[in-house]
Simulated assay, not measured.
Amino acid sequence: MTQRAHSPDKQPQLLHLVFGGELKTLDSHEFHDLSTLDIVGIFPDYQSAYVAWKGAAQRSVDNAMMRYFIVHLHRLLEPKGLAGLHSALPTS
């Protein structure tokens, strides 16, 4: 099995999901119809996710019930953060 270490000159991959949909009410995060959610995409860093989020949000500005979100997938995949990832790697 090949081990991959993070090189100091390369930033770790921090995945972000951008998605949105029409909310049931303005004061909740519950969607009106899950089958119509708009999955904008998965992005390798927050900056590119933010650009995608802003574009999607601006395209739907006429619909007050439409909301887009950025989900930090890397926090779900590695809840202990990068420190947890490094401590879990076997040492040689």
Results as ranks from 00 to 15, higher is better:
residue 23 L to W: 02
residue 56 A to F: 02
residue 86 H to T: 12
residue 14 L to Y: 01
residue 2 T to E: 03
residue 79 P to G: 09
residue 48 S to A: 09
residue 17 L to H: 15
residue 22 E to W: 02
residue 9 D to S: 15
residue 62 D to P: 06
residue 52 A to Y: 03
residue 10 K to E: 15
residue 34 L to I: 05
residue 51 V to H: 14
residue 5 A to H: 00
residue 80 K to V: 02
residue 89 L to V: 10
residue 42 I to C: 14
residue 14 L to H: 00
residue 79 P to H: 08
residue 5 A to D: 07
residue 1 M to E: 12
residue 87 S to D: 13
residue 41 G to C: 11
residue 75 R to A: 14
residue 67 R to I: 04
residue 13 Q to C: 12
residue 85 L to F: 04
residue 14 L to V: 09
residue 14 L to A: 04
residue 87 S to W: 05
residue 36 T to V: 05
residue 75 R to E: 13
residue 83 A to K: 02
residue 16 H to N: 15
residue 12 P to N: 04
residue 82 L to I: 03
residue 16 H to P: 02
residue 89 L to F: 01
residue 81 G to N: 00
residue 60 S to V: 05
residue 15 L to V: 03
residue 75 R to M: 12
residue 66 M to F: 06
residue 13 Q to P: 08
residue 15 L to C: 09
residue 47 Q to W: 02
residue 2 T to C: 00
residue 11 Q to A: 15
residue 40 V to R: 12
residue 63 N to S: 01
residue 12 P to Q: 12
residue 80 K to G: 03
residue 37 L to F: 12
residue 36 T to W: 01
residue 32 H to Y: 04
residue 59 R to F: 09
residue 30 E to W: 04
residue 18 V to K: 13
residue 92 S to Q: 06
residue 28 S to W: 00
residue 19 F to H: 15
residue 36 T to Q: 11
residue 74 H to F: 13
residue 52 A to K: 02
residue 4 R to I: 00
residue 35 S to E: 13
residue 88 A to G: 05
residue 39 I to A: 02
residue 59 R to Y: 07
residue 64 A to M: 02
residue 46 Y to G: 10
residue 60 S to Y: 04
residue 4 R to Y: 00
residue 21 G to E: 10
residue 3 Q to T: 13
residue 57 A to W: 10
residue 69 F to Q: 06
residue 27 D to T: 03
residue 45 D to G: 03
residue 87 S to E: 10
residue 48 S to Q: 12
residue 21 G to Q: 03
residue 36 T to Y: 04
residue 51 V to K: 15
residue 23 L to H: 11
residue 18 V to W: 15
residue 19 F to K: 13
residue 52 A to P: 05
residue 82 L to Q: 03
residue 1 M to L: 12
residue 30 E to H: 04
residue 45 D to F: 00
residue 81 G to M: 01
residue 19 F to G: 05
residue 85 L to E: 07
residue 68 Y to T: 11
residue 89 L to Q: 15
residue 54 K to C: 09
residue 43 F to T: 04
residue 4 R to N: 00
residue 44 P to Y: 03
residue 50 Y to V: 09
residue 56 A to W: 13
residue 24 K to H: 08
residue 31 F to G: 07
residue 44 P to G: 09
residue 36 T to P: 05
residue 87 S to T: 13
residue 43 F to E: 02
residue 33 D to G: 02
residue 35 S to A: 15
residue 57 A to I: 07
residue 30 E to T: 10
residue 38 D to R: 00
residue 25 T to W: 06
residue 13 Q to M: 14
residue 67 R to A: 07
residue 55 G to Q: 15
residue 49 A to S: 13
residue 24 K to V: 11
residue 12 P to H: 08
residue 30 E to N: 01
residue 39 I to P: 05
residue 30 E to P: 03
residue 77 L to H: 07
residue 81 G to I: 02
residue 3 Q to R: 04
residue 82 L to F: 04
residue 62 D to I: 06
residue 29 H to G: 09
residue 25 T to E: 09
residue 7 S to N: 14
residue 87 S to F: 08
residue 49 A to H: 10
residue 90 P to L: 01
residue 71 V to D: 12
